[in-house]
Computed example of a mutant assay.
Amino acid sequence: MTQAPNPNQETNILGKFTSVLGLLGAALFFAGWIYRWSYFYFFQLEINTLDLPAQSFIIVPLQIFLGNGWAIFKSTIAFFVTAIAIQVTLWLIKIVTDTVVSANQLLLNRIIWATQHKRSWIAQQLKSLAEFGIGQLRSVEFLRSLINEIVIVSWVLIAIFWLARWQGIADARRDAGENSTLPVIALVTPEEKFAVGRKLDNIFADPDLKGYRIIGDRGLFEDLRGREDNDISNPKQPRVWRLLLERGGWIYLFQALPPNAKPNEIPSILAIQESDKGHIIIRSPEVSKTSSP
């Protein structure tokens, strides 16, 4: 006759499974947040102002750990390094705590031995303190278990932080250059309240700047004027505009870095507020081969 499963055992297994899922979800959310923070920080954008959906932070980490062969290799190496670091740290903590416990035990035993035949008030208090201390040493195992859990969680968070940060910066550098996975964009919008851009009927004419004001670096604006369209006639210095993000009524564009860009070079971001009169956005995975008039 088969024995019925113990309900308490099933409840315990279910509770542990739920706890693991909760910890896994928190770790994935943390990894996704660090990844996107480092990614958009490369483009000089603050992630808290982008109003990204919370559930997207849980999906993003999949490409951190399993995005490609190199990501899997890095994740594997990080796993082994983290496991070794945890073991070494726990071993050092055990040595330190055992030494401290042994020293305290020896000191308290000597205090008890020295005061057990004395009747003075001070001697009685010292003996009471020593006996209390010996009782408190029993809680060392609990404290050691708590410290062990803190050490494990800390090392795991450190590993996730650096993996997500490295991957976020690497993906941002890739998307900022010629091998970008971001779409090429053509943005057509009414000229009212728009100080930059080429006129469709006359691309050589600059827009009228009457009534506009500026605060800050005028050179940034001057560098942009006349270069708002794509130009791939010079392979060494191509000019390609890509779409970074559409969020919260804003469109974020940037001019991709050339092939010979410096390692520390970062593209300037152009943030355009969506027009209430409507606009047209054309996305493409690559630059059009049609030559400009």
Rank of each mutant, 00 (worst) to 15 (best):
M1L: 14
T2K: 09
A4N: 10
Q9M: 12
Q9R: 08
T11R: 15
T11Y: 15
L14Q: 14
L14F: 11
F17P: 02
V20W: 12
F29L: 11
F30R: 07
F30P: 04
W33E: 06
W37G: 04
W37L: 05
F43K: 05
Q44M: 13
D51Q: 14
L52H: 01
P53R: 06
A54M: 11
S56T: 07
G67E: 04
A71D: 09
F80D: 05
V81I: 14
T89G: 07
I95N: 15
Q105R: 12
L108T: 02
I112G: 05
T115K: 00
Q116R: 13
R119E: 10
R119N: 13
S120L: 12
Q124M: 13
L129F: 08
A130K: 00
G133T: 00
L143I: 11
L143E: 05
R144G: 02
N148A: 14
R165E: 03
I169P: 01
A172E: 08
A176G: 07
N179T: 09
L182R: 08
A186L: 08
P190N: 07
E191F: 05
E192T: 10
K193P: 04
K193D: 10
L200W: 02
D208Y: 05
G211V: 03
R213Y: 10
N230G: 07
D231P: 03
I232M: 07
S233F: 04
S233D: 08
N234Y: 09
Q237E: 15
R242Y: 08
A261P: 00
K262T: 00
L270V: 04
K277G: 01
H279I: 10
S291D: 06
